[in-house]
Design a protein around this nucleic acid. Structure first.
Lengths: 252, 252
DNA sequence: CGAAGTGTTGAAGCAAATCAATTTTCGTGG
DNA sequence: CCACGAAAATTGATTTGCTTCAACACTTCG
């Protein structure tokens, strides 16, 4: 099951014709190696990019040489839907693992958005991205390093679940401690110590690019995680995804 | 000159008929006192709100009782354009000063966006809001408290200039030090000390709800401020605003 | 096998928080 | 217009969460 279709289906009620149309639009695939850039700051790209598999991130490089990661892009996420309007990238997109990426010509996006159900689903997705950004801002400003990290792990768990990846026991998270540091605005040394604390407390395991959720309920409680900002509407959206993935499972 | 019209005109090329249409749509006005909420977390508002005068902010209240301010809403900014799609507010909007607010029925927005030039201008504005949010995230994670505050003052200077408010010497900024603290994720004590340092260094003055820019060039250099994220396209957008405001000036 | 990247540990230093008290300003009613 | 109380700003002393620096161990891979 294409994670992009799963995400769109959970964002707005789509017909199977709509889904087929979206599926057709995302057939032009290419691959990007880990640590390569998909798009660079200043680019004026003609195509819009969509992650189908792997992890990517939005980032900026500051004058002091440090990298600031502002978002993780997981399967189903658009990288640069906005560039069609703003014209120029004000940040870069880098692959954190090997990524499978779909390229859509800008005109294809314009054509797709003439269908109001699809337009609404795309619009919904960008608004959830924005709400996620606000939650990161809150996290960064107000939460202690350990809760901030726990919060991030909770968020990724739910976002990945929405596209059928990972489960209650854990998920693939191909990040180095340095990348976590660039995300949370901490030093690598401190990230290492915080991870050790979370492990010692029996909340998580993190090794070999996989995050283990040892006690998800306690982790969520510790992070004071409230999923409202992800706008999953109770569990209605997740149920929709489960139906879709189940259907795909029997079909394959 | 209506600040909203100034902002829209700088976002996309609009005809005078477009501007007249936007003007007509924003005639339903009401007032909100300082410290009152315009909208609360969990609300499912039927109308969309637009600040015409005064300062407001997006904020969340955390479980520890602290308030996190995630954005300032200045004249010309929409408060909750997104709620039409997401359905429910995941944060609150509070007035920081007495505000003049326009209310637009949701259907009015839908009608307006059938005009592709207007739709593009609105879409542009929401994308700039998102880019601003990303810049705040970078600031919060990576910049020292003094540079962070300097950066905020530079941003507000340009955003206000875009709607014809303030000038190189300064602008009205009706904030308390506590509100600055809630924005930057600092304690009020530290905000006070950072302000004193910036004053001592001859960069700013801040008293009686007004920010004085003593040396804008040095302030921008100190903050390492790069205005690219505000997508003002060189100075073309600002020139458009200057023409509009000049025209309004001679007309009145 | 060596080299580079990643993870781990200890010690010292610093930016910012916290606690607590005091002064100044502001808003309101007498 | 002044007096009063409350809100906001300021100051000092102390503590702490995180950074920085430096060394070392482990892993991965050409």
């Amino acid at each position: 099951m294409n994670p992009f279709l799963a995400k769109m289906a959970s964002a707005a009620p789509l017909t199977s014709a709509d889904l087929a149309e979206l599926d057709r639009a995302t057939q032009r695939i290419h691959y990007v190696q880990a640590k390569e850039d998909l798009i660079r700051q200043g680019d004026v790209p003609g195509d819009v990019h969509l992650v189908l598999d792997g992890f990517a991130c939005r980032y900026k490089v500051l004058s002091n040489g440090r990298r600031a990661i502002m978002a993780y892009l997981i399967p189903g996420d658009f990288c640069d839907l906005h560039v069609a309007i703003l014209g120029q990238m004000d940040h870069s997109i880098g692959a954190l693992s090997r990524c499978q990426v779909a390229e859509l010509p800008r005109e294809e996006i314009l054509r797709l958005t003439e269908n109001p159900r699809i337009a609404r689903a795309l619009w919904f997705a960008t608004l959830v991205d924005e709400a996620t950004l606000r939650e990161w801002l809150v996290s960064m400003g107000q939460r202690s390093a350990d809760r901030q990290m726990a919060h991030l792990f909770c968020e990724l768990h739910l976002r990945l679940k929405l596209v059928g990846l990972g489960d209650r026991r854990g998920y693939e998270l191909p990040l180095t401690q340095e990348e976590l540091a660039d995300t949370l605005g901490l030093s690598t040394v401190h990230v290492n110590r915080v991870l050790q604390k979370l492990r010692r407390d029996g909340l998580i395991g993190f090794a070999n690019g996989r995050l283990k959720l040892m006690d998800l309920d306690r982790l969520m409680a510790f992070a004071e995680f409230d999923a409202a900002y992800l706008h999953m509407a109770g569990s209605a959206r997740l149920h929709a995804v489960e139906r879709l993935t189940a259907r795909a499972g029997t079909a394959s």
